[in-house]
Computed example of a mutant assay.
Amino acid sequence: MAGMATHLITGAGSGIGAAVARRLDERGDELVLLARDAGRAKELAARFPGARTLVGDLADPDRLSWAFSHQSLPDRVDSLLHIAGIVDLGPIGDLRPKTWHQQLNLNLIAPAEITRLLLPQLRICKGHVVFVNSGAGLAAHAEWGAYAASKHGLKALADSLRQEEKPNGIRVTSVYPGRTASPMQAKVHSQEGKAYDPARWIDPESVATTILMALDLPRDAEVTDLMVRPGR
């Protein structure tokens, strides 16, 4: 994907998303960064001066098509990078529908809806859709039920999309990072009642490296599922 590719990124404000956005920006690619509101869009535009912003709240996927219809979408999208996510732990016996809805909306339904809305542009470019999943997308543990369900669902979304869009030349990659040093990880540790030491976990830059590797792979190959684990 040499030179001036256009990437639409969710979650560019922190963690893995910020690392990916910075790397793509530094190499001269075009960025379109999704922000949940105008204030957040302003922050992202200040951090990435050449980037375009698009406003849409992933927490409310039912309103994304309305939001996008009032803004100009890019004519081309070479890659759609779903990196935003939320986590809220708790035993099934305590989780209310609200907690389920929040995680399913943001982690699963919003990526499905954004993908639907941008498929015409992705088909034109024979683009690439990357879903940043989680180890929880492959195995569910105690107190991770709602989050893991959203991420298991995200794997299903990616696998179905890959088969459906293969004739249109679209590549689809799921990345399953282990615990990554990010604000989300700090929240998980506080919910688990554990001390947080970022040095123990994967640097977001390392996950960004694997995402760029998948994007830059020659057209004769596709990375479908990529597991990234802490090396220490």
Rank of each mutant, 00 (worst) to 15 (best):
E26M: 02
E26Y: 01
E30D: 12
L31S: 01
V32G: 00
L33E: 02
L34P: 02
A35W: 01
A35R: 01
A35C: 04
R36W: 08
D37Q: 06
D37P: 01
A38T: 13
A38N: 10
G39C: 03
R40S: 12
L44I: 09
A45E: 07
A45Y: 03
A46N: 10
A46H: 05
A46S: 13
G50I: 04
R52E: 10
L54R: 01
L54F: 00
L54P: 01
L54A: 02
V55C: 02
G56T: 03
L58I: 04
P61V: 06
L64K: 05
L64I: 14
L64T: 03
A67W: 03
F68Q: 00
F68H: 02
S69H: 10
S69M: 08
S69P: 03
H70E: 09
H70I: 06
Q71G: 03
S72I: 09
P74K: 07
D75Y: 05
D75S: 14
V77D: 01
V77Q: 00
L80Q: 01
L80T: 00
L81V: 05
I83W: 00
I86F: 08
V87W: 04
D88H: 12
D88Y: 00
G90F: 11
G90S: 10
G90D: 14
G90C: 11
P91G: 14
G93M: 10
L95N: 10
R96G: 13
R96P: 08
P97W: 14
P97A: 13
P97G: 07
T99C: 09
W100P: 07
H101L: 14
Q103D: 06
Q103R: 13
L104M: 13
L106M: 15
N107L: 11
L108C: 05
L108N: 05
I109F: 12
I109E: 04
A110V: 11
P111N: 13
E113Y: 05
E113M: 15
I114P: 02
T115M: 05
R116T: 12
L118K: 07
L119V: 14
Q121K: 09
L122I: 05
L122H: 04
I124A: 14
C125G: 12
C125N: 13
C125A: 15
G127E: 05
H128R: 07
H128W: 09
V129T: 04
V129N: 00
V130G: 02
V130D: 00
F131L: 05
F131D: 03
V132E: 00
G135F: 05
G135W: 02
G137L: 01
G137D: 02
L138K: 09
A140C: 15
A140D: 10
H141R: 15
H141E: 09
H141Q: 10
A142R: 15
E143W: 10
W144N: 11
G145I: 13
G145L: 12
A146C: 08
A146D: 08
A149H: 12
A149Y: 14
A149T: 15
S150H: 11
K151Y: 08
H152T: 11
H152F: 15
G153I: 06
K155M: 09
K155G: 09
K155Q: 12
A156P: 06
L157T: 04
